[in-house]
């Protein structure tokens, strides 16, 4: 089954990271991504720019509304994701727990709805 692992974390707390902290985090994510690849479960994944760069769009009554900022203001923000293909929820949870983001925020695990 395919799962999206969403990495939620507090952007405000992350921003003042020192260069050493940043490079350490970068290396941790690099190793994690490598482990996913080696296990043959990685379908894709990206880091997202902070929510200050977000724009929200919706069409209401035929009119396009463009709003500055993320869809919802929350304490933790979506900062990136991995898409994986594993046997079941327990395997997905195990991979989510290994993600460096799980130690600093929350990982949300969602099954992909397969299209035909």
């Amino acid at each position: 089954m395919q799962y999206l692992l969403m990495i939620y974390g507090n952007e405000a707390a992350m921003t003042p990271a020192t260069p050493e902290q940043s490079s350490q985090m970068h290396a941790a994510y690099g190793a994690y991504t490598e482990a996913l690849k080696k296990a043959g479960v990685l379908l894709g994944g990206e880091r997202l720019k902070p929510t200050s760069t977000a724009t929200s769009v919706r069409v209401a009554k035929g009119k396009t509304e463009v709003l500055n900022g993320p869809y919802a203001e929350t304490k933790e923000q979506l900062g990136g994701y991995y898409m994986i293909d594993v046997a079941d929820l327990d395997a997905a949870i195990a991979w989510a727990a290994r993600c460096p983001g799980a130690s600093f925020g929350t990982m949300e695990v969602r099954p992909i709805w397969p299209m035909q």
């Binding site: 079941d88 997905a92 099954p111």
Partner: peptide, 10 residues
């Protein structure tokens, strides 16, 4: 069914 919860002894 939808979340893929396994049927096994943990």
């Amino acid at each position: 069914r939808q979340a893929g919860i396994p049927f096994r002894v943990p």
